[in-house]
């Protein structure tokens, strides 16, 4: 069966990464995506999801993060919605990838990779929610 849309509600916990990963894998395999494209999508989703749970919340309560995966023509579309503090990953500072090892920092590297791997990213703040829509071209190569 080929689902055109998958919706998930995930807790703000790293343990949910495997649920997210296997959902992406199933969706990608049904679309016949190459392992390289699937890898780039999985990595980007891990980076965005782990960012939300690491920096999005000041309290220790359980929060739900909504993930919707769909596709339209040649694009895979993933929408992430969370009720964390306002955070626009597109405005995150670019890491310095040239400087010597002693000064090298890991901060924002995940977002940097995500921006490289995804073809389009749009951020919106609606009420108390961050909504990030990312798109990836899935044309077979």
């Amino acid at each position: 069966m080929r689902a055109d849309r998958v919706s998930l509600e995930l807790k703000n916990s790293l343990s949910e990464l495997s649920t997210l990963g296997s959902s992406l894998e199933q969706f990608g395999e049904a679309l016949g995506l190459s392992s390289k494209i699937l890898f780039e999508i999985s990595l980007s989703m891990e980076e965005l999801f782990s960012n939300i749970i690491s920096y999005g919340y000041a309290d220790n309560a359980v929060h739900w993060i909504k993930v919707a995966i769909s596709h339209e023509d040649e694009m895979l579309i993933i929408r992430l919605e969370d009720d964390g503090i306002p955070f626009d990953p597109l405005k995150a500072e670019e890491p310095d990838c040239e400087c010597p090892i002693e000064q090298r920092k890991i901060g924002n590297l995940g977002i940097h990779l995500t921006k490289k791997f995804m073809d389009d990213m749009v951020y919106e703040r609606q009420g108390n929610r961050n909504i990030l829509t990312v798109k990836k071209k899935i044309t077979a190569t």
Partner: peptide, 19 residues
Amino acid sequence: DYISSAGLRVLLKATKELK
């Protein structure tokens, strides 16, 4: 089969230590 920035972070930290 898979690495994310979390894995890169460990490698960076380890190589700084070894240096």
